[in-house]
Design a protein around this nucleic acid. Sequence first.
DNA 1: ATGACGCTTCGGCGCCGGCCGAACCATCGC
DNA 2: GCGATGGTTCGGCCGGCGCCGAAGCGTCAT
Lengths: 226, 226
Amino acid sequence: MGDSTRIAATAALLGDPARANMLAALMDGRALTAKELAYAAHVTPQTASGHLGKLADGGLLAAEKQGRHRYYRLASALVGQMLEGVMAVAGPEPARATTWRGGEALRTARTCYDHLAGRLGVALADALTARGHVALGADGGEVTEQGQRFLDAFGASPSPGRRVFCRPCLDWSERRPHLAGRLGAALACRCFELGWIARQRDTRAVAITAAGRAGFQATFGIALAT
Amino acid sequence: MGDSTRIAATAALLGDPARANMLAALMDGRALTAKELAYAAHVTPQTASGHLGKLADGGLLAAEKQGRHRYYRLASALVGQMLEGVMAVAGPEPARATTWRGGEALRTARTCYDHLAGRLGVALADALTARGHVALGADGGEVTEQGQRFLDAFGASPSPGRRVFCRPCLDWSERRPHLAGRLGAALACRCFELGWIARQRDTRAVAITAAGRAGFQATFGIALAT
DNA sequence: ATGACGCTTCGGCGCCGGCCGAACCATCGC
DNA sequence: GCGATGGTTCGGCCGGCGCCGAAGCGTCAT
């Protein structure tokens, strides 16, 4: 009995639009101040404070004091995975053909907690699969021998010495899997490092730089429109 | 914007104790009638009807008419995964030492949508890992060459011809991974087939038969208490 | 046909929870 | 010190939603 009530309590925390907005804003793994989150949720600071308190009490958020600011971030990767799960079920928006500005950028490339998603994320997964560097299934994936060598050369080999695992993560905009897990995180990290992509303010969308455009083309054979 | 509101809408469906109870009751993949679900949720049939309508509208449940009964089941495996995700975050119940009857049975062995969880599920994962039949990581896993042969002999080799993938699924009671994915489903299916375990009424807990006790011991070296 | 049963719809009650204005601490800069 | 800014707490308003009783279809049995 207490089982499902805890489920309900946790889910109820996501069930409010304001709180969902806040969590969505934190999905890229960054830590934001209470005020920024209030803005993201379109509520006043005092309302936001109440929501943040509940989310922290529920164990979904971790708070960190720094001077007179207070930074909130997702409490763990588990919370991010839960949100991805809900997103996957919430599914594609109901056939709304109106492609609004910000949405298009999000669809091209964005971060998903700690890895890349959107067309870029899916294209990377496709490229690595097509070249036999990784083998992807419905429930998991693995890096091949030659894939391991390729990743080492690229500078994105996570946790050397341990087996490298990757996990497909269903993309809510493309409805196709992209790479998550340690591999996905390492790939994204390396791309930031190389300056191929850059974070932007106030959005999870990432910008693909000129160097990135060339690099993705040369290394992965990816040519993204625009 | 419409993005997070859809998340909130979906999550709000799980945020009600009655609806959470219903979904939890459906987690074993079976289809139940509206009345059974009303009983599971501890509400009157008319209240349950309202909830079921909302869950179906939200795409979480699929309904099927049969005579004067109406069977509801989870709309897809995605919904089950979402629930697992929420359970993982909702976490272990807050140190309630009172081990009540039904809870103990659930902790011993239960179904988790289509695979096995609880002590039995974790023990199976451990046994297969210890014997080198599968390699498990934080984000995915794979079946080894000898593991494949072992599974073929055991009669639980899913989808021959395609690569066999397995996915670790965090156990909410044991806080350790057990086997989900196609491999987990095939294992559970084969155990039911052999009569080692049996479903029970009104609970996701499964009973371990005498044959099962002997079989798990002989084949996997698993000796479960009680 | 008549009744029993399963399920749903409708109407009204009551409570929980989100929202904001105002006031209250803490920190920073001068 | 003193004001400005970020953040939280308090109080009251109000809308929404869960809940049930009663009544309305469909289906099955006799």
